[in-house]
Design a protein around this nucleic acid. Structure first.
Length: 587
DNA sequence: GCCGTTTTCGGCCCGACTGTTTTCAGTCG
């Protein structure tokens, strides 16, 4: 389905940039906020208009709401067309560059008559900008650097990569600096967003040790450039595997830890909302603590819990801090008890050497039993359509099932379950017979072809097969590489509920599929989810951690995730569907 | 432009660092 929300969000972001340029800060803020809200909406804005709920969204007032309606009706926003004429086109993009603020750009435009990026670069180099009052050589140098940095700052890294770099850096700092008391990577990494811009590291230490810590940090071998260096905050560019990332380090006192953690974990919208509420209660929150507004008396700040408690809220898990209703829920003590990694009892999507996995079933079992406290895993190799992946036909699948039986027998356990990742063909049928599928414990059905057509019909038809238990990576996206194929996920969620089919949260780092928006919607509709690694090698089993993170961001609790249950409970789910469709149950 | 158990007008998160200043504006997160 065509996504109008994103288009609207982009227009509002541009309007915000223009208002900033026009020195209308607060209007700019309002549009920026509206852009974020619309981007995050679980539903098409047209549905909000149809149900009259558009005006009820906090942050969307009558003016912006009418602009949304105007866009839906005419495909245009008159005000935006007018605004565009007031600002040189290139400047809308330039305002996002590091070192370029609205004031700077405005003066360059007004005093030098420069209106394109090209002219700007020329003026920076030939000294015209340096000669403006209040500008100097350093400022010009930073602006030139900003132009270069733009590409870096635009590229975001995926969560898994950010977590690996985070682990590496925190361990290195801890090991070399005994002066560090506490350390944590904050920002969007701690919130476990699917992609990350900069890395933010927070530490506590005694004041006298700050300099030493900053010296060590800014001279790490990975550092290619020091952007900012002070006693409390430093920013550097680091190179990891050839790719450049900005990393910030901030130092606090132990008694400020909770407030600093809360502050720098964000999100920005969450913090702004939190502060508004604090203000209403006569309190002030900053990164050093919670204070009484009148007397400046400190009332909290050593732990994050104390910060939230001071404003009358329960502690909010970082994954929820996006201002999507978590603050209201925390005030009413109604936050969900989110699923945790330790709740996971098994992996329902694993490939072996029978198709395109690189490890034998036997070795997978040994590894998982040694490293994970799982009660079961399901081997789900590819079916025959996946020729490049050596997909299995009926005959080879039956051979694989014999091997599984043998491995279980030799171990004296019933640890390995029989499954398949069966291809959904163009017409929605499956590329293995029901006869064979009926012998399996668990069937994942996935779309692996025809990514440009609308695949809603195929997926729904597959769910109507009594032996299909989950839809694998339902939207087919690859973060940063491939957009989701067209699919009406509302219809898919509805069909999942009706047929008793689960939706997969595929934990492969580039998939994260379904995403947090659809997870939340599935949860609200009572659809069961499974978190699976889709492992093709032994290292892949670790992806479960980020699969759980994304489920938490979608407000999923333990009961929403099928593989937090014992195998008996999963079998019950499978048999409920078989019963509904009047076919023989498995035992 | 948004919002409201102190408000329909008058606020809007707040502190660190930098560069160009000689006390601070601009930018950033």
């Amino acid at each position: 389905m065509y996504n109008i929300n994103k288009d609207l969000a982009n227009i509002f972001k541009k309007m915000a940039a223009i208002y900033e340029f026009l020195d209308d800060r607060f209007r700019a803020m309002a549009y920026q906020r509206a852009a974020h809200i619309i981007e995050d909406l679980p539903d098409d804005v047209r549905n909000y208009i149809a149900t009259g709920k558009l005006y009820m969204i906090r942050g969307i007032g009558s003016s912006i709401a009418s602009k949304i309606e105007e866009y839906v009706k005419t495909g245009k926003i008159q005000k935006y067309e007018e605004l565009k004429k007031k600002v040189p086109e290139d400047f809308i993009e330039l305002i996002d560059l590091p070192g370029f603020g609205p004031k700077t750009l405005k003066r360059i435009y007004e005093e030098l008559g420069i209106s394109t990026k090209e002219e700007l670069v020329k003026a920076l180099k030939d000294g015209r900008i340096e000669q403006l009052e209040g500008f100097g050589p350093k400022k010009v140098e930073n602006m030139l650097k900003g132009l270069q940095m733009y590409e870096i700052s635009k590229r975001r890294i995926i969560l898994w990569e950010a977590l690996q770099i985070s682990k590496y850096l925190t361990e290195k700092l801890k090991k070399n600096l005994k002066e560090i008391h506490k350390i944590e990577v904050v920002g969007s990494t701690r919130r476990r967003k699917e992609t990350i811009g900069d890395l933010d590291i927070l530490v506590t230490a005694d004041d006298k040790d700050r300099l030493k810590i900053m010296d060590f940090f800014t001279s790490l071998e990975e550092v290619s450039e020091v952007l900012v260096k002070g006693p409390k905050k430093s920013s550097v560019i680091m190179k990891f595997e050839g790719k450049e990332r900005q990393v910030d380090l901030r130092i606090f006192k132990d008694e400020e830890w909770g407030a600093a953690l809360q502050y720098f974990t964000g999100s920005k919208q969450h913090n702004i909302h939190l502060r508004e509420i604090a203000k209403e209660k006569g309190l002030k929150i900053n990164e050093y603590g919670v204070f009484k507004a009148d007397t400046e008396e400190k009332v909290a700040g050593e732990t994050e819990e104390s910060v939230y408690k001071a404003v009358g809220m329960d502690w909010i898990p970082p994954e929820l801090r996006e201002d999507r209703g978590e603050i209201e829920a925390a005030m009413e003590h109604k936050l969900p008890e989110l699923v945790e990694l330790k709740d996971i009892k098994g992996d329902l999507h694993v490939h072996s050497t029978w198709s395109d996995g690189v490890v034998s079933i036997k070795d997978i079992v040994d590894f998982v039993r040694k490293n994970y406290r799982y009660e079961y895993i399901v081997i789900t190799d590819h079916s025959k359509s996946q020729r490049v992946a050596h997909g299995l036909d009926e005959e080879r699948l039956l051979e694989e099932l014999k091997e599984i039986q043998l491995i279980n027998k030799m171990a004296g356990l019933d640890f390995v379950k029989k499954g398949i990742e069966v291809d959904i063909l163009l017409d929605g049928s499956l590329d293995l017979s029901d006869e064979v599928l009926s012998q399996l414990d668990w069937v994942v059905a996935s779309v692996h072809s025809h990514f440009s057509r609308d695949n809603t019909d195929r997926i729904i038809k597959a769910m109507e097969n009594p032996y299909v238990n989950a839809i694998g990576h339902p939207t087919g996206r690859l973060i940063g590489l491939r957009e989701p194929y067209p699919v009406d996920m509302d219809a898919v969620i509805k069909a999942a509920k009706e047929t008793g089919t689960a939706l997969e949260i595929n934990a492969q780092p580039r998939r994260m599929d379904i995403d947090e928006i659809w997870i939340r919607k599935a949860v609200e509709n009572g659809v069961k989810l499974v978190i699976s690694t889709d492992a093709h090698n032994l290292g892949n089993f670790a992806f479960m951690e980020i699969g759980v993170s994304i489920a938490r961001r979608g407000w999923a609790t333990k009961k929403d995730i099928l593989n937090t249950g014992s195998w008996k409970e999963i079998q019950k789910f499978v048999n409920q569907k078989r019963k509904k469709f009047g076919v023989r149950a498995i035992k």
